[in-house]
């Protein structure tokens, strides 16, 4: 057998837990994120080679977002690490947990509004807040605020679409994001109950 292949096989063999000696189903063995990357990257490269004019735009856009990623992702992840280590669970529970009430919802909006890059960066932050004991509604509100309440974005919107359009949309968004978070939380727990298990194993 090819030594490299054998090494890969040994590595995957090590990953299996002793309680489950059976091979997990194919669905579980595929690294979906790597598959997604392989498909997306080869599609982008192939299409760009076939249509170079569009390809130039593709390359420019991807490069812009890659730069943003390199400058923002590590910093936000370090921030998350520091938060995980230094901020006590009881503090998160107090300000963003079940009992935090309306103040917690407002705090979630404020946290989401802080200037911090694209939405995908917020997902691991949201996960950490959930694990530290923040309630689902607050995390939903946090993500929504992160996604659509950003000062540079609002300024640009105002410039193109006018202050009336921008401010009305902003006010309606803020007003509706909170009930949305509460409904989402209600449905989330209902769904969890129905499924009989929790997807978010809490940190002890």
């Amino acid at each position: 057998m090819n030594p490299l292949l054998k090494k890969v096989k040994d590595m995957t063999a090590n990953e299996q837990t002793p309680q489950a000696p059976a091979r997990p189903p194919l669905r579980k063995r595929i690294r979906w994120d790597w598959a997604f990357l392989a498909v997306a990257a080869s599609a982008a490269v192939t299409m760009s080679l076939v249509w170079p004019e569009n390809g130039a735009r593709t390359a420019r856009a991807s490069w812009e977002y890659f730069k943003e990623l390199v400058f923002v992702l590590p910093a936000v992840m370090v921030m998350m690490g520091l938060f995980a280590v230094w901020v006590d669970r009881s503090l998160v529970v107090k300000y963003l947990g079940r009992e935090s009430g309306f103040k917690g919802l407002v705090l979630a909006i404020v946290l989401g509004t802080l200037p911090t890059g694209p939405l995908y960066i917020a997902f691991p932050l949201a996960l950490m807040l959930l694990k530290k004991g923040a309630r689902v509604a607050n995390v939903m509100v946090f993500l929504s605020a992160w996604a659509c309440i950003k000062l540079p974005l609002e300024l640009m919107e105002m410039q193109f679409l006018g202050w009336k359009f921008t401010l009305t949309r902003l006010a309606l968004t803020i007003a509706l994001v909170i009930p949305m978070g509460l409904v989402a939380e209600f449905l989330y727990h209902k769904w969890e109950e129905h499924a009989g298990y929790s997807e978010l194993a809490r940190e002890p």
Partner: peptide, 17 residues
């Protein structure tokens, strides 16, 4: 990492094509 890089490739395709 992998998912984020894939997202960047997809964004490139959308913007370019």
């Amino acid at each position: 990492g992998p998912s984020v890089l894939a997202i960047i490739a997809v964004i490139g395709i959308i913007v370019g094509f």
